[in-house]
Amino acid sequence: MFYWNNATSKLSKHFYATFVFTYMRTVLVLSLLSIASLTNAQDIELISVESLDRLIAKKSDKVQVYNFWASWCGPCVKEMPYFEELNSSKSADVVFISLDFPEDIQKAQKLITKKSIESATYLLNSTNYDDYIPKISEAWSGAIPATLFISPSGKKYFYEKAFEKSELLQVVENLSSK
């Protein structure tokens, strides 16, 4: 009898726990869905130097644009909408690479959400600057903003500077046929 009682109470505890868990999960999923429907902003993913290398090596019919930025960099944040527009108008494949410290990913995410960035977004998971900077471009001294353009034929063009909108459109137009 004693044994039986104990088992029932264990069983009901189990049911209760399952119920609470399911309920909480539903609430969580619903609230996440409602946040997602407010904005289509991307979730920033950490990316390794090797994966970024592979991403850059990928072929495309369009100009590929890799913009290097950080949430603390004023001129970077200012030029982001110009790049986002290139992506939404489908004139280029745009990828934002944040160089915020990996532990500051939330700061980068906040900006991406605030600016409603829908282009692909990553945070480079490395602080071994002298290793990755020359891999992206020998011409890069490490200043940001910096942008790597890859023409449809695979030629690389690197700019260590902030862009004005018209200038950026011009560069992409010029490279589209290269």
Binding site: P75, Y129, I133, S141, A143, I144
Partner: peptide
Amino acid sequence: SKRAIGCTIK
């Protein structure tokens, strides 16, 4: 020589 990230000169 060692490279590092920094802010572009204005």
